[in-house]
Structures are given as C-alpha cells and as structure tokens.
Design a protein around this nucleic acid. Sequence first.
DNA 1: CCCAAATTCATCCTTTCGGGTGACGGATTT
DNA 2: AAATCCGTCACCCGAAAGGATGAATTTGGG
Lengths: 140, 140
Amino acid sequence: MRKTIFLYGLSLAALVALLKFFEYRLFVRDLSVEVYISVVAILFTALGVWIGLRLTRKKIVLISPDFQLDTSVLSRLGISKREQEVLDLISKGLSNQEIADKLFVSINTVKTHSSNLFQKLDVSRRTQAIQKAKALRLIP
Amino acid sequence: MRKTIFLYGLSLAALVALLKFFEYRLFVRDLSVEVYISVVAILFTALGVWIGLRLTRKKIVLISPDFQLDTSVLSRLGISKREQEVLDLISKGLSNQEIADKLFVSINTVKTHSSNLFQKLDVSRRTQAIQKAKALRLIP
DNA sequence: CCCAAATTCATCCTTTCGGGTGACGGATTT
DNA sequence: AAATCCGTCACCCGAAAGGATGAATTTGGG
C-alpha cells in the first residue's frame, strides 16, 4: 500500500515534469490551465479506475473460490474437527470407504462420524448434508 | 454510460470553474500549475476509484446468485430434460423415492434416469454427480 | 490429576443406491 | 416403414449408506 502511494506520487511528479518538458520544448507557452487540468483529470481518472480494479480484484475472487468457513456455526452445532473433515470429503463426492482410506481410519469410524454429523446438521442423507452445509457456509 | 461521461465532463468543468473562482476571489494568483495538477489528480483519482468500483460491483454480485445453466454442456453430454430435472432434485438432497413422488413417476423410472445421468456425467455416485454438475455449471 | 469430550472401532439390521437387463409406447428422423 | 431416442416401468442383485448401540482409547482443559 505504501508502495502504491509512492508510485502514485512518483507518476504524478513524472507527469508534471513531462508536461513542463513539452511546454518548454515545443514553445507552446499558451497552453491554458484548463488543458492541463483536463489531461491530468483524464489520466488520473484512468489511473483511479485501474487502482480501484486492482484493489477489488482480490475481493472478487475471494467471494467464491477462496472460502473461509463460518466457525461460529461450526461451534454452535458442536461439529468437531473430524466431523468437519468427513463433511468436506463427503461434499467432494467420496464414499465412506474412500474417506476411511484417506483419513487412515476404519469405515465404521467414518460411519460413526457421518451419523453424528447428520444428527447435528439435522439431515438424514449425505446429499442433504451437502446442501445444508453449503447453506451454512461450512463447505465451499 | 453516456450519462456517466456527461457527468464526468460536467464535474471536470465545475472543478475548473471552482478553481478559477477561488483564484480570482482570493487574489492568490501565484498558485502554481503544479498545485492545480496535484489537486485535480488526487480528486480525479478518487473519482476513478469510485467509477471503477461502480462498474465492477454488478459483476461481483453476478458471479454466484444469478445462475444460468450451460446448455452447451447439456447438449454436448446428451442430457435430456428429464435427466436434468432428476439431477436438480438430486442436488437438492432428495432421495429417489422423493424424486419419484415429486415427478409423479415410479421410483424405477427415477433410477433409470439417474443411472443414465451418471453414465453421461461419468460418475458413479450421486454426490459425485453433484460435484461434477456444479463444476460444469449444470446446477447452481 | 481427573473428567468430559473426542476419536476410534465393532456388530446388527434396515434402507437406499447403483448396475444390469429387458420391455413397451410415443415421437422424431431417416 | 425402419431406426433412433426419450420416457416409462419392472425385476434382480450386490454395494453403499444409514440407524442404534456399546465400548475402548485418546485428548484437552479445569
């Protein structure tokens, strides 16, 4: 941010110098202040647009792909870390056996976690869990 | 957009007039061009930022909520209307029986549709179908 | 240290899901 | 008319998922 401000001032100074340079170089001394202001206004409006896009670009891509879960909902429903992991893998379309292999636990353990998870989410099927978890911002 | 350009030019003219006014009103005739340019640059940079945000705000909200399915993918995979309906209900967490009740058909019909759908989506489970359909923009 | 919560695993049973196959009527295309 | 696609329905079978319950182990916090 400090860098941006510095570059901003630098470009401003450069523009002024450039205008001065052309003013004396081409002996066009009758350039009115209005012309100066117009040029500067247009250029810096464009710069402002660019800066604005630059600053908000992160926010745009943060909306969907970069996702942070709502931990308040997580604690309110009493969902543990392991259950959250299972939920995440369920939402990725994995079967209980695949989840068990990925977490290095028994399939029975996964079934226990998913059962507890469904109770806490108040659903009875994993597809419903996906739907509800998405609404609660527990998964992307 | 034309309105925006008009207002832009108008504000530019107003600013110039304002500066001129203060210049003669306060008898501060030695205001350098650099000061003018700096003020104008700062103000119009802010204006540019505002415009940039204004123009991109619509795109931001358009990313997720407003959804239109990709019919090209739909036809490329040869997914029929009925299969698409089943897909939509599957993504909402409904069981085959519930889908059958909602579509007024037999559960066997739903199973046939879902099986064909899974083949066309190249998946083997409904949770995978949800995952993939979302990636293909077939469901919100 | 101790207790509560979390994690782990198991068994039994029922329901749901998925794959495969076959069939029939209707609409469209060839 | 024949072929093709869609939608419908049925049956069978195995796999996966879900519910209920019990229990052992580990872990984190008071």
